[in-house]
Design a protein around this nucleic acid. Structure first.
Lengths: 237, 237
DNA sequence: CAATAACCATAATTATGATTATGATCTGGA
DNA sequence: TCCAGATCATAATCATAATTATGGTTATTG
């Protein structure tokens, strides 16, 4: 999404055969991402969008099959960028146990920075009610990938330090703890983008601090202590 | 919202002068809450809504000024009910320090149960992009009230046990910690309602367990240890 | 430098659903 | 019981914005 005015090959997007159309396609996508910081998807009319870049609806429909296809493309590109960027966090593959704290903070901070940069598209996508699941699965995939990433924080890669004090593989319970931690972190950020309930907003650096710390607490509590004391009957999932 | 077919006096709602209309008003509100579990607000057409209860659009518009007024009323009633219900949680006003754990769990569980029961309206309200702030402020108020409530958990009411080991009033830092904890809990639940990202959904009892435990961790960490170690420059707010 | 296909602008068309107009039918108080 | 509202049903409006139709303009290619 940054600078590559390269081909965009996605369903519902007419492939460009000339440089000109590649540019309008790109311009439309970029302008949309920008405008979605203000309006939501329903409020973003095709003609507004086109006016923004000095084009007309005719141009739009010669590039995209429909408004939905357009937004799907925009979202797909955004998420793909996110995958690229986030899955290299935290940078170091193997860490010393003591680094858990720093690594968590770094991971969360990376997520926050990415989300800030894509507020508009993310909000629009998250708000889009029901419809085809095509939409939300992309998020789930990303979240799951992040979860796996975070699991590595807890249990460094098997071939790591010589010490063999812990089993190399994380237990199922630990995996669930990690997944829940990621759910909490992402949910808080998503809600900050959607509703900004306060006290901390997505643009406060402190939100990254606190969520990082929160993740540390959850991971630690889940890995040494027993599972959070069960009450009531067992739940599903 | 439960059984009182009493007057509903809200802006945009025409006051009923006959029993009949009181009933249709109530039926419309109830049916809307139900239908919103499936569709979102945009997908809920007035005629669908009316068909649902065997009425027609004429009836609707003789009760409500507009669709927006209708939903505002629905939301207002829902939130009012929430205030009534949630602000009596946790039941005991004064608690022993050791009860923090149990109280947190109870508070969170209460919130979860309430949210489950109002999924539809809550989702619709949360999804409603931008527009007049009339909407979201209701939530903020509730969240803030909950926050104060939670603050009491941390620091029991001043006139409590004879022991004077802690200052009776919570520090500003502690209040912020509490507010953040509430933000995390509510955000996770809101996102569970909106997007159900997993692993835990709003209908899993385990989500209440884990969030309760999470709240405990956050409160404890914030009240004894120093604030989460600051890195980078200080943030706003 | 044509000729042909891409590309795009303009001006309809269409679909949807909220809102209103109009007149019947009901209700509660006298 | 009877009637003046109150309430509701039906059938138009209206507004909005997505989508299409049509034809002109621009780029590639032989």
């Amino acid at each position: 999404m940054t600078a590559r005015i390269a081909q965009v090959d996605l369903p519902g997007v007419t492939p460009s055969r000339q440089q000109r159309s590649r540019e309008t396609t790109f311009a439309l996508l970029t302008a949309g991402a920008e405008l979605l910081c203000t309006r939501n998807l329903a409020e973003l009319s095709i003609s507004d969008l086109c006016a923004q870049i000095g084009a007309t609806v005719g141009a739009f429909y010669s590039r995209f099959d429909s408004k939905e296809a357009y937004f799907n493309a925009l979202l797909a590109l955004t998420l793909e960028g996110g995958r690229q960027e986030l899955l290299k966090l935290p940078p170091a593959g193997s860490v010393h146990p003591g680094d858990l704290d720093a690594q968590c903070h770094q991971l969360v901070r990376g997520i926050v920075l990415w989300m800030r940069r894509h507020k508009g598209v993310l909000r629009a996508a998250l708000v889009r009610g029901e419809h085809g699941a095509n939409n939300w699965t992309g998020f789930k995939d990303l979240a799951q990938a992040l979860s796996q990433r975070a699991a590595l924080l807890l249990r460094p890669a098997p071939h790591d330090s010589g010490a063999v004090r812990r089993k190399p593989a994380a237990t199922a319970a630990e995996l669930k703890t990690v997944a829940f931690g990621v759910q909490v972190v992402l949910s808080t950020l998503v809600n900050a983008i959607l509703n900004d309930p306060g006290p901390l907003s997505i643009d406060d650096d402190e939100i990254a601090e606190r969520l990082g710390a929160c993740l540390v607490l959850l991971l630690r509590a889940g890995s040494d202590g027993p599972a959070p004391k069960p009450r009531g009957r067992p739940s599903k999932r």
